[in-house]
Simulated assay, not measured.
Amino acid sequence: MDMSRVAEQGLVLLGCGKMGSAMLAGWLDHGLPASSVWVIDPYPSDWVKSQGVNVNTALPETPAVVLVAVKPQMMGEALPAIQALGGGGSLFISVAAGTSLATFEGVLGQATPIVRAMPNTPAAIRQGITALVGNDNTSDAQIELAENLLSAIGETVRLDDEAQMDAVTGVSGSGPAYVFHLIEALAQAGESHGLPHDLAMKLAKSTVAGAGALAIAADEDPSQLRVNVTSPNGTTQAALEVLMHEEEGFPDLLRRAVKAATERSKELSRE
């Protein structure tokens, strides 16, 4: 990842909780000098303080990038600190959920290049996937720079339109929780058939993790992988007849779950 311009001009990280720290760790590992990073956070962790980055000090005049990683609720009080950097040569990247490009433009000025991104929690172990979209002022080179920075925490995908962000929130943003609940429910089902709690949980975790890894590594798509492991009249088929049930199975359940998350995302962005 080409960090030379960012290293020269500096990167400002507004908010350095779990997500900010995961990104910072990735950038430092990719060779971004600690002295080129400014962190603004009211409660920086001991880890952040020990990295050699500039913490809560005066900001450079025109940093290459300002990355906004505060929780949406804290956005109001955090933005004035960076307002002065808007409208100029600094690229803003926001990973704050539910905060639209228009909201940022209102605070930073219409001329500011802004990329809105939606990562997810596996970013903490650099297994995230981040969807991103730029406003009208972002160049292709700036979107590429944003992709480069966000690739420190996993995969990236570009959206055609900001309107897709609510559905992305429903699928990958909130999605890890659906998978955690699947693991939880699968383990409980194993326990109800006589497996000890720890064994059932270990089997459930490794099964979901392994199947996910296989889905990414395999050339076939997941529906073909499912067919491959389903022998006629076998145990898997018996289970899938329950899970693939039209009215009560996974397809309908997940459609409703993703719809609920997508609708809530739309509501939050209007509040």
Results as ranks from 00 to 15, higher is better:
65 V>I: 11
42 P>T: 14
251 P>F: 11
3 M>N: 13
13 L>Y: 07
10 G>P: 00
100 S>D: 09
251 P>S: 12
36 S>F: 04
92 F>C: 06
182 L>T: 12
267 E>P: 10
219 D>F: 05
44 P>W: 09
221 D>W: 08
214 L>K: 06
235 T>Q: 09
65 V>P: 02
145 L>W: 05
138 T>E: 03
172 S>L: 01
16 C>F: 07
76 G>D: 15
82 I>C: 05
71 K>N: 09
76 G>C: 11
137 N>D: 09
69 A>P: 04
84 A>H: 13
19 M>Q: 01
140 D>A: 15
130 T>F: 04
40 I>A: 11
70 V>I: 09
218 A>M: 09
23 M>P: 01
207 T>P: 01
91 L>Y: 04
3 M>S: 13
256 R>K: 15
227 V>N: 14
168 V>A: 01
54 N>Y: 01
77 E>Q: 15
254 L>M: 14
51 Q>K: 15
162 E>T: 10
62 T>R: 12
206 S>I: 13
104 F>L: 11
121 T>V: 11
119 P>R: 08
66 V>Q: 05
98 G>N: 03
185 A>Q: 10
132 L>S: 06
68 V>D: 00
194 G>E: 05
107 V>N: 04
128 G>E: 04
25 A>K: 15
112 T>D: 01
38 W>A: 02
142 Q>D: 11
215 A>H: 08
252 D>H: 15
235 T>N: 04
23 M>N: 05
228 N>Q: 14
31 G>R: 05
122 P>M: 05
260 A>T: 10
230 T>D: 03
19 M>S: 03
31 G>D: 08
84 A>T: 13
262 T>D: 03
176 P>E: 03
1 M>K: 13
271 E>K: 14
